[in-house]
Design a protein around this nucleic acid. Sequence first.
DNA 1: TTGAAAGCGCTACCAG
DNA 2: CTGGTAGCGCTTTCAA
Lengths: 346, 346
Amino acid sequence: MQRDGSDDTRRGRPTAVTRADVARHVGTSTAVVSYVINNGPRPVAAETREKVLRAIAELGYRPNRLAQALRGQRSHVIGLVLPDISNPFYAELARVIEAVADARGYSLILCNTRQDSAREIAYIRALVDRRVDGVLLISGSTSHELQALAREMEVPAVLLDRSVNYSGDISLVATDNLTGGRIATEHLIGLGHRRVVALTGPARLGNSRARGYETAMREADLAPELHHSAEFDFESTYALAMTLLSEAPPTAIFAGNDIAALSVLRAAADLRIAMPGELAVVGYDNIKEAAFSIPRLTTMDHPIDTLGAVAVEVLLERMDAAADASAPMRLVTPRLVVRESCGAAR
Amino acid sequence: MQRDGSDDTRRGRPTAVTRADVARHVGTSTAVVSYVINNGPRPVAAETREKVLRAIAELGYRPNRLAQALRGQRSHVIGLVLPDISNPFYAELARVIEAVADARGYSLILCNTRQDSAREIAYIRALVDRRVDGVLLISGSTSHELQALAREMEVPAVLLDRSVNYSGDISLVATDNLTGGRIATEHLIGLGHRRVVALTGPARLGNSRARGYETAMREADLAPELHHSAEFDFESTYALAMTLLSEAPPTAIFAGNDIAALSVLRAAADLRIAMPGELAVVGYDNIKEAAFSIPRLTTMDHPIDTLGAVAVEVLLERMDAAADASAPMRLVTPRLVVRESCGAAR
DNA sequence: TTGAAAGCGCTACCAG
DNA sequence: CTGGTAGCGCTTTCAA
């Protein structure tokens, strides 16, 4: 009888063929099968290798990744922790990260924190318990909370897209939001606007974009005026835009992200404020929708592909490096995309 | 010395505390520790239990989920396979699925197939090799290709949002797209439109929405007119909308999804076609953006929350059921959301 | 070049 | 009620 010691009547799953079956089939040891599969760590006679490969194909053997992970040092899984997968910017980022990870043979565990820093910690614990090889973290937390996170982080990690002032041993990959905020604001100022207000996200978040805005305003001897929405979603930003535009409409708005900018477009339409005639807006992120809105949005573009790819690369690097290696940090510069929402550039 | 037999100098990860450490600390066996953690399968004296719990807290012990999964029957991971996470509809679905799964103690492995059915199969293999407990599949494949998929599928699975005519043992949870397509079209016809064309996705996809459209048209003695875009994204649908609207503009368009509908809005604006005056559009999916576009989109709403939650529930049910249990199937009915893109309802 | 065997951390059975 | 222990499928060392 071929069916060996499966006295255990596991019903449900079809009884999987294991490495031992292959070994028996060939008449060799399980070790050799391992060597063949992993190309090492020891050489195998060409002939034996052939036989093993044939048996693998014949029996349809596929290694149990769980067992490999338990025994070996690598699970080939990385965790992706982000604030809100339904935000197109994060979704886009997730898309490229998943693609790069897949190309490198890694699976991705998706953790959607819903902007809750307690959940961030819980997720990171769970990921560590699952022995992920690394964590990609797009945090919604303050710098302070990040310290607590770093403490839970017992695996290599890369902090993505949040240029907080953090000096732990978590690597950082981000676009330079400070410069981005400044570029956007300078564009508006350069167009002749004097009263340009910033419509940004929850105050609790450290916000480099807003600081870039403030810098630009001060340098032009203009008074910064920051408005915070409760959340960074359509509902909140639309509500804020409505009150702002109906009470004391500025001539220009710097929106902290494109969702907010799109909300401003909507609010302006509701209030019969002509755009870009009476109101100029620049957004941030250059999500897909920004190129198809009415009017099309002028916005700051992150090279999302680069950002995601670099993040994965840096993470893989760190996973291979010694634990005490220094945490690299990469900033990539955003780029202004001029479309219609500010009127024609002069 | 507290630090026991870690002669193995694993650098990198901090040496994890295991169940054996806890047992030794308490002066009991590892089995008892297991019984405490899992509340079974055998009872433990209240006093012993206390001691164990204290030791666990003291040592900061946390079970290795990998080992649990290898040994036990459950990995508490489910795979989510979908065509495009950067499509807001899928992203939204992913959001609720992740939330429900998390609440039930399951992690989610994200697999983004980029509309490639070969990749679908590869992903499913990888998921099986990782011993996921189940798979949630939002397929971009034809019914035919699904047969091949089903063959790879050695774990419980639920097919989501694709009401293909498939009678395997994969459960199905979907909105009734046939009815949805009909409702949308009837709305347009009811508004007095005679030439209403459908702008839908790639022809390769079986498309119940389009069939619903055709049904409604025929019932009203109108000639159906289907246009397929190369892909179901902004670029493709916008290109199609531009040619359609500049060559032989109909008075009404049924768009196969909201991305396409948004593209139509954009194309109409570019062509100076007044909306909803000269052109009515109804979309499908009711993505967030649909409520904030200009004009706001009339569209078919799936109850995404329900859909996602039901899908997870059904999957969990199937995971607990015997392997030969029948595959349940649930259809939920979509709902027309009337906004501005068709003009005022009469 | 290969076989045998230890052991990753855990669960659950056999015996007390 | 609990200790001892086999074994999940795999990798890698020790010894031939």
